[in-house]
Structure formats: C-alpha cells, structure tokens
Amino acid sequence: MRDEVERAALFDMDGTLVDTNYLHAVTWWEAFRQAGHTVAMADIHRCIGMGSDHLLERLLGKERDRSKDDPISDAHKALYGAYGPTLAPLDGAADLLRAVAARGFRVVLATSADGKELAVMRAALDADDVIADATSKDDVSASKPAPDLVAQALERAGVPADRAVFVGDTVWDIEAAGKAGVPCVALLSGGISRAELEEAGAAAVHRDPLDMLASLDTSPMWR
C-alpha cells in the first residue's frame, strides 16, 4: 500500500483561495478601456482563470494589434496591484489547506498569476506552514487552459496524476486538470455556476473553501 504522503492536493489561487476574481474583472475592464476597447464585464469575468495571452485572444480576437498586448497586460497588472494590501482569503481557505495537509496530502499551489502576484496572495492567505510548493505562470510556457501548470505542480509534488486532486473555480481549471489526467473539485466562489462547472467535468462542486472543508470527512476523495 502506498504511503499517504504520496498524495497531492493542487490548488488554484484566484477565486479558489483568495477573493480576487471580480477585482481582476474590474481591472481588466479598465485596462481595456484605457486602450480604447469596449469589452463587457461579464465576458471578462468568464475568462478569468485563463492566462493573459488566452484572455486577450478570446476577448479581442486573433486579428487584434498584438503589439498592444503587453501594454494592456501591464495596465491590468498596475491597476490590480493597487489592491494588493487589501486582498483577503476566502472563508475557510487556510483551514482547508491545513485540514487537507493533515490528511497526508502535499499541498501545492498552481496559479496563472505571475510570481509577484502569487507572493501577495500567499501573504494574504497566511498558510505557508502547510504549503509544500507553488508554481506560477512564470514557470511554464503555456498557461491555463493548457495543462502545463498542473503538470508542473505534479512534478513539484512528486506524485503521478492518479495520486492528485486539483481544486479550482473555473472551467479553465477543470480543462487544464483534465488534460493532465487529474480530477478537479470546483468551488462556486469564483462566480461560475454549478451547472457550468459540472458540465465541464468537475468531480465535485462546493460553495466555497469553508463548504469544502465541512465535506472532507464524508468525501472518499480526501480519505
């Protein structure tokens, strides 16, 4: 029988552990506005969780002036960065990580954010005592919904896909995890509906980290 420490729980950050998805939507909207683009907030929100390269292509199209991509992304980073000191974890997020770690899972973070944003979110989360490792978009060549981040997180955890669970909040998390062969538990805290998450292939759906925490003892996935 395998030792339980050979299991891993891979966690997204934005909208899963830290309450940032709507801040991203607002600041992307403003970055687009400053660049002369009118993009509906609802459309932006549905792209949160993708890497910025995929987000820009989905919202502005393949025929856009790609020379403007970096200035738009930089504007978003600056606007979003202003909220850094006020970021807050979702209810139960740190306790969830500690409870999962206590069950023998290696906790590894896997986020489409860059390393600087990851550091700010980790500080807000305040659970480094149980986080074994973390990976960000700086560590991979392709962002979600490509599986690279999940694959990198598996490598950091030192486990195969069949010994891991991914926890996220968007259809892009579910798609990335699925391509890497990892089941995904989804949370509603990112603002995506239960129906959409289930249709995308979520193994289970919970309201938020606190709700997921309450289910750990009854879910065979976490035993």
Results as ranks from 00 to 15, higher is better:
residue 58 R to W: 10
residue 80 Y to K: 07
residue 48 I to Y: 11
residue 64 R to Y: 10
residue 75 A to R: 09
residue 81 G to H: 08
residue 50 M to F: 10
residue 52 S to K: 07
residue 73 S to R: 14
residue 71 P to L: 08
residue 52 S to G: 14
residue 63 E to F: 04
residue 57 E to I: 02
residue 67 S to I: 05
residue 57 E to F: 03
residue 69 D to I: 05
residue 70 D to M: 09
residue 60 L to F: 09
residue 56 L to E: 00
residue 72 I to G: 03
residue 53 D to P: 00
residue 72 I to H: 03
residue 71 P to T: 02
residue 55 L to Y: 07
residue 46 R to N: 02
residue 69 D to L: 12
residue 66 R to S: 13
residue 59 L to Y: 05
residue 50 M to Q: 13
residue 73 S to I: 11
residue 80 Y to H: 06
residue 64 R to H: 08
residue 65 D to R: 10
residue 74 D to V: 02
residue 52 S to N: 14
residue 56 L to D: 00
residue 66 R to G: 02
residue 48 I to K: 08
residue 54 H to C: 10
residue 70 D to K: 15
residue 73 S to V: 13
residue 56 L to F: 03
residue 60 L to H: 02
residue 51 G to C: 14
residue 79 L to R: 07
residue 53 D to M: 12
residue 78 A to N: 02
residue 68 K to W: 03
residue 64 R to S: 07
residue 50 M to R: 06
residue 50 M to V: 01
residue 61 G to P: 00
residue 69 D to M: 07
residue 73 S to N: 09
residue 81 G to W: 05
residue 58 R to S: 13
residue 48 I to P: 01
residue 70 D to T: 07
residue 47 C to D: 04
residue 50 M to Y: 13
residue 65 D to P: 00
residue 59 L to E: 01
residue 58 R to F: 06
residue 79 L to F: 11
residue 75 A to I: 01
residue 81 G to P: 04
residue 69 D to F: 08
